[in-house]
């Protein structure tokens, strides 16, 4: 019970702090928080796949890229208003995930991991090679128009903040429900023991496919927000490194735990900013920190607990 209280209190404090953030922080830090928010969306969506269902997906950036490029192409070529491309980005990323999943999702553990790394690389190289003359090659696509929300053009980090963190809040709400539902339970059952899950009536193949497509589609929508924030998309934003970052966010915070994953997003995306003083050594410190934290807390900083109906 006390743990529940602590969690609730932490959630309230966090929500208040985030509401106040754009008013009290400098533009630079609000911009950092916007980036953290987009990473949080990616990490929360990967958490469904990796944390809840236990599928080793180290190519999440590929689906992020498909969404971002879908938005970039639709806005710059067809003049579609940016936020209206959200469903298209989700659909494109989801369909691509389904396509990838059919041959790949039956693979186990580390085989799946390396294949998703491969899919990520193939997508990045495809973008560099300007597939279908749509992606602009190594330079990418620039001049993506700013989004409008309620007639207001969102241009500054402060203006984008409510959009991005509103999306994060909605994602937390929806994924929290999902996690507590029968679907969430089935995912965890698949992760814990696939044979037992199937033997308890869970259509494990469908559960794996559904969560992979859903998580990937969500990453696609994060891509839309990324395009809105940057106004430029290029292949280098969607490399292996991005997938690794999101992967570590999920596991550092605690796979399967929403507060843990948020914490992971803040630490992995935000802390290097705090370490700017260390200059070129900051990634060294980051690598060391990953090792130390896994040795000290192998289950993550804020792990999921099995209790009640979870």
């Amino acid at each position: 019970m006390t743990r529940g209280l602590v969690a609730t209190a932490a959630a309230v404090v966090f929500a208040l702090a985030m509401t106040a953030a754009p008013f009290v922080l400098s533009t630079y830090w609000v911009d950092v928080l916007d980036s953290v928010g987009i990473y949080a969306l990616l990490a929360l969506s990967l958490n469904l796949i990796l944390g809840e269902a236990g599928l080793y997906d180290m190519g999440h950036a590929a689906f992020f890229a498909v969404g971002a490029y879908t938005t970039a192409i639709l806005t710059t070529r067809l003049g579609v208003p940016l936020l209206l491309t959200l469903p298209a980005a989700a659909l494109a990323a989801g369909l691509f995930a389904a396509l990838v999943a059919l041959p790949v999702l039956r693979l186990r553990g580390d085989y799946l991991l390396i294949v998703t790394v491969g899919v990520g690389e193939i997508v990045r190289i495809a973008l560099v090679n300007d597939v279908g003359s749509l992606t602009g090659g190594a330079n990418g696509i620039f001049g993506i128009p700013r989004p409008f929300l309620f007639g207001l053009k969102l241009r500054t980090p402060e203006q984008l903040f409510p959009l991005i963190w509103g999306a994060v809040a909605l994602t937390i709400l929806v994924f929290h429900r999902l996690s507590a539902s029968r679907f969430g339970r089935q995912l965890r059952a698949v992760r814990e023991d696939e044979v037992a899950a199937e033997g308890s009536g869970v259509n494990t193949a469908r559960a794996r496919l559904t969560v992979f497509v859903l998580g990937s589609a969500w990453a696609g929508m994060a891509g839309t927000l990324f395009a809105a924030k940057m106004t430029v998309v290029s292949p280098e934003s969607f490399g292996f490194w991005e997938s690794v970052l999101v992967f570590t966010m999920v596991l550092l915070g605690g796979a399967g735990s929403i507060p843990g994953v948020l914490l992971g997003a803040f630490l992995v995306a935000g802390l290097p900013e705090l370490f700017r003083g260390l200059a070129s050594a900051r990634m060294l410190v980051f690598g060391l920190a990953l090792m130390v934290m896994m040795v000290v807390r192998p289950g993550g900083l804020w792990p999921r607990r099995a209790r009640g109906a979870s």
Partner: peptide
């Protein structure tokens, strides 16, 4: 073969979920 990281109740709920 139980779902060791899930609660006792959740283990049973997975069985019930089939319906």
């Amino acid at each position: 073969r139980l779902f060791g990281g899930m609660s006792v109740l959740s283990n049973v709920l997975v069985g019930a979920d089939a319906r």
